[in-house]
Design a protein around this nucleic acid. Sequence first.
DNA 1: TTGAAAGCGCTAACAA
DNA 2: TTGTTAGCGCTTTCAA
Lengths: 347, 347
Amino acid sequence: MVLTRRPHGQRPTIEDVARRSGVSRSTVSRVINAEPKVRAEVVERVREVIAELGYVPNQAARQLVTRRTNAVAVVATQPQDRLFLDPFFDCLLRGIRRELARHGSQPVLLFLDEPDDHARVADYLGGGHVDGALLFSLRPGDRLPEMTDRAGLPAVFGGRPLPGDGDTAPRHPYVDGDNRGGARQAVQHLVSLGRTRVATVTGPYDQENSAAERLAGYRDVLPDTSSDLVERADYTRQGGADAMAKLLAGCPDLDAVFVASDLMASGALQTLREHGRRVPEDVAVVGFDDLTDIAEATDPPLTTIRQDAEEMGRLMARLLFDRTAGIAATDVSSVVIPTQLVRRDSA
Amino acid sequence: MVLTRRPHGQRPTIEDVARRSGVSRSTVSRVINAEPKVRAEVVERVREVIAELGYVPNQAARQLVTRRTNAVAVVATQPQDRLFLDPFFDCLLRGIRRELARHGSQPVLLFLDEPDDHARVADYLGGGHVDGALLFSLRPGDRLPEMTDRAGLPAVFGGRPLPGDGDTAPRHPYVDGDNRGGARQAVQHLVSLGRTRVATVTGPYDQENSAAERLAGYRDVLPDTSSDLVERADYTRQGGADAMAKLLAGCPDLDAVFVASDLMASGALQTLREHGRRVPEDVAVVGFDDLTDIAEATDPPLTTIRQDAEEMGRLMARLLFDRTAGIAATDVSSVVIPTQLVRRDSA
DNA sequence: TTGAAAGCGCTAACAA
DNA sequence: TTGTTAGCGCTTTCAA
């Protein structure tokens, strides 16, 4: 059971166009690539024939000689339905698309989910299907960066890789939101509201740099809080709900909580409701991410930290192009994007 | 500013491998493609050299002769942050991935958002980067199907295209959820609860077949309801909230509402709350889609209609392969997947 | 401004 | 079981 294209000769080649318009292959090629030195009437004639035949250049052939594909891979993990809940990722992609479009490049999204995906994606990247790769939130120890390096494929990270992971970390530029600064903003806001028992629900800080940074931001403001006030979860709604319950059990008099993601915060809010705590009167809550559809739908709507995802995407694409503009062989310039507090009703 | 691969000779070719292992190109090719008739020790030697050199076959070259890419395009619109909020789409993709993996094919996701995306995607598809395409919720009148046909590229629709759109509709197989049946289930459930004034908030039924079908399902059960009980919205949260307000204004004594998407339902719930209506006591609510993270986060949690998205994805991929297995040139077999009522607290 | 010819890296007959 | 040869469809010198 093999997927085959329409039988041969069916698809017109550049040769067909040439014959039909009474010029040589080279001339047709020039027209296709909009090279200047072709007589206007020839251009017109060739264009007509192209339209008539429905000719589309065979990219494989073109690619074989030019070594360009005009496509860039965006590689992302989609762990158990999480990633795409994210308007964040949406915006990121939009930024990437817009920047790539300026270079005439097509973004193609690849998934890294199940074990065998990894090998297939590696083959795809190594096979020269794309001119570069934007790699998102790789697991610590992922071998993809190594692979792209060997293949000579430019790559840029989205989200800073967890540090302390040796070989791959320093080589590629990355773009990330200011997780630590954002967390600081959130906690400072809570403190400025006069809250004195400020807890936090964290993400999986041993696996994700963003989670580690957000916890660090909390600690920046509140270096001496008791460990009762810190509860680790996994960036899921249910995880947030459970963590909140534990916090409440360990420390019934808490009056504020910084929850390191909106999704977890929506779970936390539910737990608070079930325990009869009013938000924000009894407990003020700040989330992180500004997933609008979640943050606006909760009761009460969620005060949270926003990152400019579109800008991040745009920058990643730009870095990718920079990286190969000759200049940047050694200059691994990375970027951190500032965050912003969005006030709604929960704090 | 052009994105270039590592300078030439840097990437080893099959020729390099051949020379280094003292065999011919063909033999190396045979090893790569795991053809049986090669002496075991030769295989081993060649494999060693491949590893040593970090050789990866150039897909463009291979593709030029085999006419296969082992990649399938998944083309989707991502209108104003909507698409990816969708765990539905997540599951769909998972199904697609799993089925494609069985054929060793890599799914690559392409976006169709802004006007120029369309041309670029068309070039990409026509350029032979992929063996087939899975096309999602195209706008009525979209020219992509026509294009894939000309290029001889097999295609399968996700979501039935709005009928009455002439040329393209009948030619491609599609996979869709049973929108009409699901809507019937929802409304029947409301009726079985003893509700007598059952309103509905619809999607944009002139643009999306799913919206039209869901409205039809409502009418199947309640053919004679006054037009006061039907309000059209746009599948957004805010749209759902506004539509609910209009329904309440036009028909204050309604006691149930079928909202044609969970996202709109979350908006409707908020409006009901603001108007002091208790759910489900005063007004019972049923949504559609089962976007778990939304449906579970609303207050009260939302009763809704679920579609088996993963199965849909799997089927689409299977249909794509079937379509080219020779048999199916004329046999445009499409599939509709049944739905299921998920009871939570809102009805 | 145009055409002829060479070659990108690979697979696929066909011979050996 | 292996090697030789001829392309796949395009771009790109180089001459004309």
